[in-house]
Design a protein around this nucleic acid. Structure first.
Lengths: 237, 237
DNA sequence: CTCGAACTGTACTGTACGTTACAGTACATA
DNA sequence: TATGTACTGTAACGTACAGTACAGTTCGAG
């Protein structure tokens, strides 16, 4: 009894490695991957509460005890999984940043296409859904997601607009607000709809149509009228 | 034992009234209200799984048996609560629709202010959060929310824009897309941020600033430039 | 006031879950 | 090949929960 009661204090291995960390052997490494993959599938489709450790082990192999050795407890596995998924989703997003080729029209269209395709996939939707549902459980991960995801994306577009404003004939008073407005127009209701309704994927031609419309609306509203008589008729089709 | 085993078949009262219905007496009416109120508070703050019947009864008074008499089971109470909250949130929204006074600027600003304040309150956020988290449990309610809420709002704005396009000097090729873009700009990241992050309320002056910015951006992009002799800038017929 | 139905309180049942303990096994290392 | 240890499988524990049964109480109708 006494020996049992110390088990919590002895939760660190002799050489200082925390038990709630990465695996200690090469076998554990494989099991850790399997558990994280199973977690990414189960937690995200069934939610935290409805996913049982038995489910996870049945999917990943191994045993429940291993979960405790590798992740401390159920919440630890969930948290580790979310950190990873978070990173993966953010990588999708960062792909969309920063190429500044050709005209503003072209640059914005290209960014927006990349961005929209990046956030409308199933994984992103699922991760954000869990983030919303369990944000109370993992406020720090939610915060990091927001800062590294949406906030950074807006800042990236704002930087681009700022650079453009200097010599690009655009009237941009508040780059952050403009960037936010542009991104909002591009996304529209699609993302929220995907969170609330079981979504069939958005057809790619609708994505393109929406992006071109948003860019046109954005530019024609923001383009300085003093750009000489001819006016930049953003010609297409 | 034999008598007990028939209890499931006897789940309907002798006179044919299903147990999962509205209360049969005046006392039950009060208890039903109390239970729905408790549910609106607890389910929405703690989620479906983490809210226990004991919690609900402790908050609402009465007894667990009453829940089964009035709502059938836990999910029935949840569903009834969501239907009501849904309706309340949608009422907020419908307040924002359809006044068409003065200039387009003024009309859009007024609508947007009303709309944004309507969706940025705590109740709306909480209800949508639950809708996202439990959309699998109540797909029909989620669908109804979407159709009666966002979809109807967009349609309302689109109708307004359509009416304006006829004689208002605005170039509106696709009223639905324009309405969607406008609303998206107005909302921006605010709502999604409120879902993911524990939100402090948005200060009212920020709401106003955002709305005015969105309206200006929207109109300057959509206003037909007929003053400048000819208006060839409009790309397509 | 009486009566019966509607509601309440409580105790109980069965079950499912997270967590732990432990004995057995497979594996990396030397 | 020998050895210690990192992982596995299983069983068990305690708890917490939804749902049920039932006797007691309240309240409105006649």
């Amino acid at each position: 009894m006494v020996k049992g009661s110390v088990s919590r204090e002895a939760w660190v291995t002799p050489d200082g490695e925390a038990a709630t960390g990465r695996p200690v052997g090469p076998r554990g490494e494989a099991r850790r991957r399997a558990l994280l993959d199973a977690a990414a599938r189960l937690f995200v489709t069934k939610g935290f509460e409805k996913t049982t450790l038995r489910d996870l082990v049945e999917t990943a192999g191994g045993s429940r005890a291993t979960i405790y050795e590798l992740f401390g407890d159920k919440a630890g596995l969930f948290r580790a999984m979310m950190e990873e998924s978070n990173r993966r989703v953010l990588d999708h997003l960062s792909d969309a940043r920063s190429p500044l080729p050709a005209s503003p029209d072209e640059a914005l269209v290209r960014f927006a296409l990349h961005f929209l395709r990046g956030i409308l996939n199933d994984e992103t939707r699922a991760v954000v859904r869990v983030l919303v549902a369990e944000s109370g459980r993992i406020p720090d991960i939610a915060e990091e997601f927001w800062q590294s995801g949406p906030a950074t994306t807006v800042r990236g577009v704002a930087d681009y607009l700022r650079a453009l404003a200097d010599g690009g004939g655009l009237r941009i008073e508040d780059p952050e607000a403009s960037a936010q407005a542009f991104i909002s127009m591009v996304v529209g209701e699609l993302f929220m709809k995907g969170l609330i309704l079981p979504g069939r994927p958005v057809p790619d031609d609708e994505i393109e149509r929406r992006v071109r419309y948003a860019v046109r609306l954005f530019l024609d509203g923001i383009r300085a009228p003093e750009a000489a008589g001819g006016g930049p008729a953003s010609g297409r089709s």
